[in-house]
Design a protein around this nucleic acid. Structure first.
Lengths: 240, 240
DNA sequence: GCAATAGTGATTGTATACGATTTCGTACTC
DNA sequence: GAGTACGAAATCGTATACAATCACTATTGC
């Protein structure tokens, strides 16, 4: 997880180093949303000059992790509800596809691992450990989509997850009750894969799983956002 | 079309200028696949220094238009059949979603315009004008997906089209006979939108339309590529 | 004649320096 | 007292310069 098309830029590169460092700080929350990223400051912290840092920031901008304004500077992208909506919707689509494409390549060992992870998630619910739950959730889905044979799609999925991570959109944070349903849906998803369900069915299930999380979020959110959301129906959820 | 998340980088920026210039040259074929992009040379041509050029190239790399190798340089991405497969598959997914999301927002005027474009495409078939056909094809699909209310998805669609443009994957070029089927499918798509078909049906149709082009390409391609493609089934096509 | 190797040229990677733009604080005016 | 104009500090944008790396070729040894 979390390696995004590094093509051609080996680890030794300062640019790459800056990219990884800043990204890590955003994802782990050291730089929280709204944080002002000053090139010179970051450059000094990392012991490199501003040029590679600038390149790193621009790259993070392309991934949506930071917002860049000319002659003003970069800030870490915030928890704009609309952005959350866009991201979840996009992820629903690409992750659904990735999971469907992965399904035929998922072996018994993968399934077993996913089940173990899901069991741990259940435990987290009892001991209320949101942080671990979120990390395990990522692990679970990784098993489902990591075998996706199309690297472009896989990359899009990774980007979506990174974006969510930067938004700190833990399921617990937004909708406490949702987590319980989530683990149940995980088990259902596994059974579909296990029994060799059609790619179409798996894709729908994966989409619904994410859409449900989004819907739960929207349900407990101010009316204004819901109104905006009405213009952006999530595909495959409200069908039938 | 063809504006890809320029966020924060106003037109006046040399970096932006370099990006647009190089991109244009790639898309219009001045720099054809395999062309070696030397920073210093491009910088001189554009009358700017190498730093903005470098930034532009890196951005194009992120979009998949060029391939970058450390300490070696950048080359325009080539017509690697596998890359073509990946791109078409991804586009099939995001364009399908974008079209489905757009559908409810497409008005009668849009439909009429699309019909006019499709009629022109028919003419191109008779007079054999592949270049114009390809451009019109893009216009046609733009009508279908440009109303997509989710900018992230729309951006992914644009990227896919740009990538195809750089690959010069004109339908004519790859599979002459395919173009005739294509215009027929266009009409069918329009009718679905017109009659308010479900988002699911529209999405499937849009995916199939693209998958068919991909399949046609694969059908006339060496066995080795087909074998590789077998590992990468296109979703929603073989389901029937 | 072939292979390994050292040297050379070309190209990228990064640092430093300076100009351009914006922002924010302050003083001044109405 | 509020609003505006001005100025200074901060920050970004780009040019230039140099160091690091790699590809290619010629040479040498076998």
């Amino acid at each position: 997880m979390t390696e995004t098309a590094t093509a051609g830029t080996r680890a030794g590169s300062k640019s790459e180093q800056a990219y990884a460092a800043v990204k890590a700080r955003i994802v782990d929350g050291t730089y929280s949303p709204g944080y002002r990223l000053v090139l010179a400051k970051i450059a000094e912290d990392l012991g490199v000059s501003v040029v590679p840092v600038r390149e790193a920031i621009r790259r993070l901008e392309a991934e949506g992790l930071v917002k860049f304004e000319r002659n003003v500077g970069a800030t870490v992208s915030g928890i704009d509800p609309t952005e959350y909506l866009y991201t979840m919707q996009t992820l629903s689509i690409v992750e659904g596809a990735a999971t469907a494409l992965s399904a035929p390549l998922i072996g018994e060992a993968d399934i077993a691992r996913a089940r173990a992870v899901n069991a741990e998630m259940r435990e987290c619910l009892e001991h209320f450990d949101p942080v671990r739950f979120t990390r395990l959730n990522q692990d679970f889905h990784s098993v489902l989509f990591e075998h996706c044979p199309n690297p472009h799609i896989l990359d899009l999925v990774h980007r979506g997850w990174n974006r969510l991570a930067s938004l700190r959109s833990s399921t617990f944070r937004f909708v406490p009750g949702r987590a319980h349903d989530s683990v149940a849906e995980h088990e259902a998803l596994l059974r579909l894969v296990e029994t060799g369900a059609s790619a179409d069915d798996i894709e729908k299930a994966a989409r619904l799983h994410r859409s449900a999380t989004l819907d739960a979020y929207l349900a407990q959110t101010p009316a204004a956002v819901q109104a905006a959301a009405a213009d952006h129906p999530t595909p495959q959820t409200s069908q039938q």
